[in-house]
Design a protein around this nucleic acid. Structure first.
Length: 349
DNA sequence: AACCCGGGGCT
DNA sequence: AGCCCAGGGTT
């Protein structure tokens, strides 16, 4: 078909030179696909380079300490991706002799590998004609094929998977799938598609009807909620108190300065009381040093940062005193980084 | 099917 | 402020 040829030829001529396009190693391609979930190419590039340098082979990652792993992932977000990736890699090391399986059934059984990632790795690393449908592909194909189903609905993805299965190139499945995604990234963009530059506009039903701006159809309302927290840098001499989050839920296993839900308009002495109670020791000299808002897609953190001194504390098992050097090795999330920077600017750490 | 899980860029 | 994401796991 001419559509497949036009798409693949355009991809060959115009594709970006990305680090993960310079390897044929299924393990490294797998890493890139996990990092690229919900994350932009420009953001991923430096992370990917550092990551494959740190963990060049599947076994290097399988054997890595989780804290080292999360530190490499710090700032990329969706930290369960990193832990699921390692779980999947361990499974391949133990059950598949270190070879990433080449069937959809087997690769889909790996932790963190869903329908999209399975198809992406199978087609790109192994040249197998499997669909790899993400939001990008749904946008592109909704326009080319004039599909008006709501792409926010889970079952709609199956329609696009079937469409790709019907039209995917069997000569070059890798370039076909990557071409669709590259088209979505460079030409067939969400708000203002560059149809006059599009290599397949002659095949595009939406363009012919002048309806490219109406597609894809996507309904979604998202509610956001706000959380109010106090973070405290608690010092005993050179030691800094840090706590590890639980192994489930938000920012699992990440470290943070001791954090409590904040009363509205709290005074420093109230913070001292709350912390002293929680840590069963003496917290003193509390002083507010920063106040900021950290917005995520679904929630907003309102954070007040304090400095305080702590003595004779009964530390729960998820807390520990660290040196400045040890602090730099702990994986921390965005809001905690802001607090850390505020302390650095004050010369406190 | 609905909800949870980060972060950065664009409008 | 609201929208866009190169999704997968859990319930």
């Amino acid at each position: 078909m001419q559509f497949q040829k036009d798409l693949i030829d355009w991809f060959a001529a115009e594709k970006r030179d990305l680090p993960w396009r310079r390897t044929a190693d299924p393990y490294q391609i797998w890493i890139s696909e996990i990092m690229l979930q919900q994350t932009r190419v420009e953001t991923v590039i430096p992370y990917y380079k550092r990551f494959v340098e740190k963990f060049p082979t599947l076994y290097d990652l399988a054997e890595a300490d989780e804290e080292i792993l999360l530190k490499q992932w710090e700032g990329l977000g969706y930290y369960s991706r990193a832990r699921n990736l390692q779980a999947g890699v361990k499974e391949v090391a133990e059950q598949y002799d270190g070879v990433v399986p080449a069937s959809r059934k087997e690769i889909s059984s790996l932790k963190g590998v869903g329908p999209y990632t399975a198809g992406a790795v199978l087609s790109i690393a192994y040249g197998i004609p499997e669909h790899a449908v993400d939001g990008n592909v749904m946008r592109v194909l909704s326009r080319i094929l004039l599909i008006e189903e709501d792409i926010a609905k889970p079952k709609t993805r199956k329609i696009f998977e079937q469409a790709v299965t019907d039209i995917i190139s069997h000569e070059d499945p890798s370039s076909f799938n990557q071409g669709l995604m590259e088209l979505g990234a460079l030409i067939c963009t969400p708000t203002s598609p560059k149809c006059l530059l599009c290599p397949v506009r002659e095949h595009c039903h939406a363009f012919h009807e002048g309806r490219q701006h109406e597609l894809p159809i996507k309904t979604k309302a998202k509610k956001t909620k706000a959380l109010n927290y106090v973070m405290a840098s608690i010092r005993d001499g050179d030691a800094i108190l840090m706590e590890k989050r639980p192994s489930f839920g938000l920012l699992a296993n990440m470290w943070q300065f001791p954090m409590i839900e904040s009363p509205q308009d709290a005074f420093p002495h109230e913070i001292e009381e709350r912390l002293s109670e929680q840590l069963q020791g003496v917290i003193s000299s509390a002083e507010k040093i920063i106040s900021f808002k950290h917005v995520f897609s679904h929630l907003t953190w309102n954070v007040e940062g304090y400095m305080a001194e702590g003595r004779n504390l009964q530390l729960p098992s998820h807390m520990k005193w660290v040196t400045r050097e040890e602090l730099d090795l702990l994986p921390i999330s965005g809001p905690v980084q802001k607090m850390k920077q505020a302390l650095q600017q004050r010369g406190e750490i």
